[in-house]
Nucleic acid binder design. Structure first.
Length: 829
RNA sequence: GCCGGAGUGGCGGAAUGGCAGACGCACUUGACUCAAAAUCAAGCGGGAAACCGUGUGGGUUCGACUCCCAUCUCCGGCACCA
């Protein structure tokens, strides 16, 4: 099978040859078709096939060993959408792989004395089988795992290229260390002071680590043009990047000039003291002998605190250094304090405190009896009560500031104020970001080795491209301490300097696994390319991803890193686009029946393999589409799956059984209306990812078809058309039963190679409509009228309705409203 | 505190200015059965009714779950970022 393009629908009526007496049995048909599709290469993607390309991707899984129900939820609906688009003539790339580096493999290895590689690859094999049992249209010929040397080789290549461009660098600094995972973490991987992976409270350590310069792209990452992401994802990324526009102001101190960052340079005259973070480099020099003991004691206490403890302390703490700074405008002396409410990692690690107009400074000044000087007054308001309970942090009007008096405060005059301060040489405009560079080195084994060697003569050197990949050694020895075996591996550590050829020492750290997922979407375009990370011609043709789906938990991690990575690749001329995802959507989360997050310890886990054994994959797919709006999710209702199970049973008997029950009178136009209005609705619902309403509409149509089968219309061409269109509409959602019905109805080719049926617009609307009649906005009855009825005809028909007439009796007419096909409203007084 | 989202039957939800509760679950009744399951059929917001009903209070409109203002609650994210 080489032709994967949709073929024109056969519109000839096709009758079922033989009624089948057996009931719907998914097990008999699902495995059969999965094998047949694989044998036919039905889902193999050909980039040169006709049709506009559509790249659909769902975030690839970590090979933990099992696909859980959440995986099914995230993959089934996008699979249905991909199948729908394929039937609509798009050339759809829908690949899958495995994000296979990471700690679980290593932890399993340490705990059970296994080989992480063997553990990982056997999991991949098992999970691939699960994907196939789901009935997806994934093109498995493009599968890869990020732990394949053919893949991580290019992680290393990118790293060395970034190193050459100054985008990858090593430096000392205060970092987050997870004591359980025995590695450092990036800022993005610390949530409320805890390790994002394992939940352990992180420690602060001073270590030399590798960073990628994502801050170079901070401003560009704030521009979401060219990528359609949900508002909350944009909001989270924007906040994470945290752009603040303001000024740097220089204060003279006994330890030399000290620069502080402020977003309110207009409050400079209100600065009554400076505060340094405890880790600030100048603290020691500024501490006077009289204050030495007090400062030392404070640093000890504060240094032992975690970030969380610092933030949780109810009261501000701090200590006077004994030194004073010179106010750059007033020329007077203001005290310099040390306090841990100032963060060393933001701005310059020091602030000018304006207690009158900043809540934090206010609280600190009140506690330690420091001066509070009002320089901003609310518009038309009273002077600030410095003995009151709060600062005024609004914009207001500048006062007590000499030449600035009378200017509006805040944003309105920030440029003017900065310009005047610049003239005096005490300040300059400055934009600060909250975003920090991405810490990418990890003290772990199961990851991409960092391709750097250290030469005693030439320092850190990138491993030359022709020596990549630096292979991760196998047969390593794990110690229970959790330390990376690479550190103990003398063979691995031995290297030669690419500059002098002398003995050098290899870096024993590996890369953050978020590196792996930052560019994997490109690799699917040319998974076996071996002269670069991807084939530029294919990438240009297939990227960006038209619809990227996955969980919201990656809103700032994977998605931000990936956007950064692709911008770097663009600057390296490897791609011509700046954003990897054209559209991003997040599916919701399926909770346990108890409305809690599923977990083994809670015992509320729903196993998809069990469900498939009991109901078949098509039923599970349907229930997952039906259970909730796809982008919302919700608790698993164990009895809810009965609905889809009964429905597919009814679909089966609709095609094969005599329908028992009273004779019905469904007209040909009723039948065609039901079919084509449903077709029109679900075509739109597929576009807007409204999968639950697709299922509802198909169920509703089934109810109509069941009735129709008991009426004379079942012997007309309209009936054959109805079954044909219905069969095609089933294909994206329930691919196995749709294929079985298609073949039972005498078709030789796959239902999945057919074109999506065309809506007969004339049939999709009714000639006559039943519309509601309101009297003064209240519904009083309904009338059946022609859809082309004039207003006069419609109103006359409405007035003829006794329930309506009753409410019109003796009232004075105010207005008559007629919206064809919608409503009649007769307003009376 | 700031940012984002959501409040509709017993439950999941539908309806993007036009008959609120589609579709389904659960439940009730009936048919079939010795019986049960499965299946089929009927019912299922409240109220005796007039009517009342989409968190609450206002507003716009002939008409509001839907738009505007205010407010409450819940969920998610961030949180001493100067």
């Amino acid at each position: 099978m080489t032709d994967h393009q949709p073929q024109p629908t056969n519109t000839q009526p096709i009758n079922i040859s033989e009624p089948r007496s057996e009931r719907y049995n998914p097990h008999a048909i699902e495995a059969k078709w999965q094998q047949q599709w694989a044998a036919d290469g039905l889902y193999t993607f050909d980039p040169n096939a006709p049709g506009e390309k559509f790249y659909a991707l769902t975030m690839f899984p970590y090979p933990s060993g099992n696909l859980h129900i959440g995986h099914w939820y995230s993959y089934c609906a996008p699979d249905a959408r991909a199948r729908f688009l394929r039937m609509n003539g798009r050339n759809v790339l829908f690949p899958m792989g495995f994000d296979s580096f990471g700690l679980p493999a290593e932890n399993a290895a340490i705990k059970n004395n296994l080989d992480p590689r063997a553990w990982t690859y056997s999991n991949i094999e098992y999970m691939t089988g699960q994907f196939q049992r789901m009935g997806t249209m994934i093109d498995w010929s493009r599968k890869f795992a990020t732990s394949d040397p053919e893949y991580y080789r290019w992680n290393q290549w990118f790293f060395t290229e970034m190193f050459k461009r100054g985008l990858a660098y090593k430096r000392d600094g205060l970092v987050n260390w997870c004591p359980k995972d025995q590695t450092v973490l990036a800022n993005e991987q610390v949530v409320n002071g805890h390790c994002e992976r394992c939940g352990t409270q992180v420690e602060r350590r001073n270590l030399s680590q590798w960073y990628l310069k994502i801050t170079d792209y901070a401003d560009e990452l704030l521009d979401f043009g060219g990528t359609d992401m949900p508002e909350r994802v944009r909001a989270m990324q924007t906040h994470w990047i945290g752009k603040s526009v303001g000024a740097e102001v220089v204060f003279d101190t006994p330890a030399g000039p000290e620069t502080v960052f402020t977003t309110r340079p207009d409050t400079l005259m209100g600065a009554t003291f400076l505060v340094l973070a405890p880790e600030h480099a100048k603290v020691a020099e500024l501490t006077t002998p009289e204050q030495a003991e007090e400062v030392r004691a404070y640093l000890e206490v504060s240094g032992g605190k975690t970030d969380v403890e610092r933030q949780q302390s109810a009261e501000k703490t701090g200590v006077f250094t004994g030194s004073f700074a010179t106010h750059p405008i007033g020329g007077h002396q203001i005290p310099i304090w040390v306090a841990d409410y100032v963060l060393v990692s933001y701005g310059t690690g020091s602030i000018m405190a304006v207690p009158a107009h900043d809540e934090r400074d206010f609280e600190f000044a009140r506690k330690f009896g420091l001066d509070i000087k009002e320089v901003i007054r609310p518009e038309g308001g009273e002077p600030l009560d410095v003995s009151g309970n709060e600062a005024y942090s609004g914009e207001g009007v500048i006062v007590n500031s000499g030449e600035f008096d009378g200017l509006p405060g805040g944003k309105a005059s920030i440029a003017t104020v900065i310009a005047k301060l610049e003239e005096r040489g005490v300040a300059k405009a400055k934009t600060t970001f909250r975003l920090r560079d991405w810490l990418v080195s990890r003290q772990r084994y199961w990851g991409t080795p960092i391709p750097i060697v250290y030469c005693p003569e030439h320092g850190a050197q990138a491993v030359p491209a022709d020596q990549l990949p630096v292979l991760l050694p196998g047969n390593v020895h794990f110690t229970p301490t959790g330390q990376s075996p690479l550190k103990q591996d003398a063979e691995f550590r031995k290297a030669t300097c690419p500059v002098c050829g002398g003995e050098a020492e290899r870096d024993t750290d590996t890369m953050d696994t978020f590196v792996d997922s930052s560019w994997y979407m490109y690799r699917f375009t040319s998974p076996h390319f071996d002269t670069g990370p991807w084939d530029p011609a294919l990438a240009d043709k297939l990227m960006p991803i038209d619809l990227y789906t996955g969980g919201i938990e990656h809103a700032i991690l994977h998605l931000l890193y990936s956007r950064f990575w692709i911008k770097v690749a663009r600057d390296m001329q490897l791609t011509d686009i700046s954003e990897p995802f054209k559209v991003l959507r997040n599916q919701g989360i399926i909770l346990g029946p108890d409305n809690e997050k599923m977990s083994k310890s809670r015992g509320n886990v729903i196993d998809p393999d069990d469900l498939v054994r009991e109901y078949g994959a098509d039923v599970v797919r349907t229930y997952l589409a039906f259970i909730a709006p796809w982008e919302v999710g919700g608790p698993w209702d164990p009895s809810g799956i009965n609905g889809p199970a009964k429905w597919l049973g009814r679909v089966w008997s609709l095609f094969f059984d005599e329908i028992k029950g009273p004779a019905e009178t469904v007209s040909e136009s009723d039948l065609r209306y039901a079919v084509h209005s449903t077709l029109k609705k679900i075509t739109g619902d597929f576009e807007r990812l409204s999968f639950n309403t697709i299922v509802a509409a198909l169920m509703e149509l089934t109810n109509t078809l069941v009735k129709a089968k008991r009426s004379p219309v079942a012997h007309t061409p309209a009936w054959a058309e109805a079954l044909n269109v219905f069969n095609l509409m089933l294909a994206p959602l329930v691919p196995h039963i749709a294929e079985e019905l298609w073949h039972e109805r005498g078709q030789a080719s796959s239902v999945h190679l057919q074109s999506w049926p065309a809506v007969d617009e004339a049939a999709a609307v009714r000639d006559s409509v039943v519309i509601g009649v309101q009297v003064s906005g209240k519904v009083r009855g309904e009338v059946e009228i022609s859809k082309t009825a004039s207003q006069a005809e419609a109103i006359a028909a409405a007035r003829a309705n006794p329930d309506v007439a009753k409410h019109l009796d003796g009232k004075q007419l105010v207005k008559e409203v007629y919206v064809p096909g919608r409503i009649i409203n007769i307003v009376v007084r």
